[in-house]
Write a protein that binds this DNA or RNA. Structure first.
Lengths: 195, 195
DNA sequence: CCTACCGATCGGTAGG
DNA sequence: CCTACCGATCGGTAGG
């Protein structure tokens, strides 16, 4: 028996609706009444499933952080060139951005609305991930695969490119997800210009 | 006589403080009390200088939109290759992001909080700018300067790269603004990998 | 420029 | 799951 929307636990439905609203209006501009409307409940009834607005944000942010760290682990253990590792990570980011809108909340600015100690904990995970990504770039430079560039600039330029995908990319419409992944990777790895 | 901070009209000081707060916390999470504290006034006194919170956002967004459209006009009239034109625009975006934090509000998501008819008007200006940027990319592809890529993908990848500069780049600290401009341009034009 | 204050809305709770 | 309601805070106004 296939899993339908109705089988999903209410908590998950609430979280997905929240992620969509956070993406569209931002965390602060999304009220619990907005969220309640989206899942056809009264605001007070939400609290039978979640304990606070911030808990939803926290769950979304940390789930995505751990998911990306798990993939980083796998990529680090690949027997592959730095180029292949960077491309694997880019593919992950592009695919996630197009398929899972909870990731937008985590990657973009909404995590800033976490309060302590969650804010510091999240920033530490993010910094850990970025540091490991940058180490792969540095290895690629040392191996002569990449141009000699400030690793921090390369890291953030790659990161930023994928960060705003949600804002312009509409799946299916002319550009398929596969085209997008292939062309963005090629652009970032080989650049705009010929030669 | 040099212009000092004190010579600036109060309205401009308020706008700059607002832009900084919008960047740090977002438009919705910035209250008029926050803004009043930043300029050492009571919230009610702000209204002697501005007419509403949204007016500040509107001013910031449209001022930047017109500034970028004016530069686009100049770039279009340059007697230069598509490569040179794209680099000129990238330089503008990078320089603006590092020097003027009001631009962040306009380029990133805060403009979404405009209400109609300003929202549609702003989106139209943005679309106009993006269309003209994309036309330059298309000309570069036709001229054989650029790899054959979906122009929309190239446009948004370039755009997104510069959009988050404010989030990680701290001027002076190790990486100078000149290094940043040069290396980001090189990375986007020539890519990560050698050959 | 301030004090005083407005109605609306916020996240969340009590109680059933 | 609802109705009823809480104190806090919101953007903004009146009046001086």
């Amino acid at each position: 028996m296939a899993t339908t929307e109705k089988d999903k636990p209410k908590k998950q439905l609430i979280r997905e609706a929240a992620a969509r609203l956070f993406r569209d209006k931002g965390y602060s501009a999304t009220s619990m009444r907005d969220l309640a409307d989206a899942v056809h409940l009264r605001a007070s009834s939400l609290y039978n499933h979640i304990s606070s607005k911030e808990e939803i944000l926290k769950d979304i942010c940390f789930e995505n952080a751990y998911r990306f760290l798990a993939t980083m682990e796998e990529v680090e253990q690949m027997d592959a060139s730095a180029t292949q590792k960077v491309m694997a990570l880019l593919h992950l980011h592009i695919r996630t951005a197009t398929e899972d809108f909870t990731s937008v909340t985590a990657f973009n600015d909404e995590w800033r609305h976490l309060s302590e100690p969650d804010l510091s904990a999240f920033k530490a995970l993010r910094k850990n991930y970025e540091g490991r990504f940058q180490a792969i770039i540095e290895a690629g430079i040392r191996a002569g695969e990449f141009h000699s560039v400030e690793p921090a600039i390369a890291l953030h330029t790659l990161f930023s490119s994928v960060r705003w995908l949600y804002d312009w990319y509409k799946p299916g419409k002319k550009i398929t997800a596969e085209d997008l992944e292939e062309q963005m990777c090629r652009l970032l790895m080989k650049g705009m210009t010929k030669q």
